[in-house]
Simulated scan of single mutants.
Amino acid sequence: MRALKMNGTGNAFLLVDARKQTFAVTPERVCDLAEAYDFDQLLVLETSTDADARYRIWNRDGGEVGACGNGARCAGWYLTRQSGTDTALLDTAYGLTQARRTGDFRISVDLGPALTKWQDIPLARVMETIALDYALESGGIRVSQPGAVSMGNPHIVFGVAELSGLPVEMLGSMAEHDPLFPEGVNAGFMQILNRTHIRLRVWERGAGLTKACGTGAAAAIVAGHRKGLLDRQCHAAMDGGDLFIDWREDNHVWLEGPVELEGGITL
């Protein structure tokens, strides 16, 4: 079976189109493939009666997850290239999602509604999600009161004065495995440059520190806006490049950015 190596703003993926050929996925197989091809997530497209494809995601540790924004953009780009159209419909764990081609290698995708109730994240106990009563410390550096948002997957976002020198790997891993988050959590660390621009790094559950995280960028803008610090349309500069986020009045968050096709492989 053929697969594609792709990335969305540096977020690395292996994309498999299994709509015409069965592709068996086990946690062990995902881990083996990740070791061989060095990706953050495995993306698998399956047949759907309601959309162009059913879209499924596995983190590099073998765990299946419900959402991946940059992965959805890569899947959307592939489907539009296959169909010769500018739009594609993905059948995801959180509902039907539209992807739109905005350039030869640029895709915008509807990530669905931002959910902010404590049960939606989910958290282990009742807590105000605008600013959680929660803190982490590593190497004498303390971060606290993150915003919590679900974008089909759980996120917390800490505001920091400066990203340089922040022990993101240590802090992110601590958050991922904290019992406050029964399904684990993606931990974002956001430096606000102005009301429409942020710098962001994200520790992804099951994948570690990645060059970009689409749902993490969306969660950061939602969290920042809820605190009165950001506008609803913002640019997020990540290690792999820039993303544009538009949190619309219908509560849906759109994510736009570049994709890259690195090449094909035979599994």
Results as ranks from 00 to 15, higher is better:
Arg201Phe: 02
Thr80Ser: 02
Arg106Tyr: 00
Arg201His: 08
Thr129Glu: 12
Thr116Asp: 14
His197Phe: 13
Ala187Asn: 01
Thr85Ile: 00
Phe158Ile: 15
Asp32Cys: 06
His235Phe: 09
Gln145Phe: 14
Gly224Asn: 11
Thr116Asn: 12
Ala161Lys: 12
Gly228Cys: 12
Gly84Arg: 00
Ser164Asn: 14
Trp118Asp: 15
Ala12Tyr: 03
Lys20Tyr: 11
Ala88Cys: 05
Arg19Ala: 09
His155Gly: 01
Asn194Ile: 11
Leu33Val: 13
Leu115Asn: 07
Arg60Thr: 15
Lys20Gly: 15
Glu64Gln: 14
Leu89Tyr: 04
Asp50Val: 08
Gly172Cys: 09
Gly257Arg: 05
Trp247Asp: 05
Asp61Leu: 07
Lys5Met: 08
Ala175Gly: 04
Tyr134Lys: 11
Glu260Pro: 00
Val168Lys: 03
Glu262Pro: 00
Arg248Cys: 13
Gly228Ala: 11
Pro182Asp: 09
Glu204Trp: 05
Gly208Pro: 09
Thr210His: 04
Asp239Val: 15
Glu249Lys: 07
Asp231Phe: 03
Asp104Tyr: 00
Glu256Arg: 06
Lys117Cys: 08
Tyr78Cys: 04
Gln82Ser: 03
Asp38Trp: 10
Phe105His: 10
Pro258Ile: 05
Leu200Pro: 14
Asn11Ala: 13
Ala99Phe: 01
Met6Phe: 02
Ala161Pro: 10
Gly84Ala: 01
Phe158Asn: 13
Ala12Trp: 02
Thr26Asp: 11
Ile198Ser: 06
Ser48Val: 10
Glu262Gln: 13
Thr92Ile: 08
Leu166Glu: 04
Gly165Trp: 02
Asn153Met: 01
Thr80Lys: 00
Leu42Gly: 07
Trp254Ser: 08
Tyr55Asn: 10
Phe39Asp: 01
Met174Asn: 11
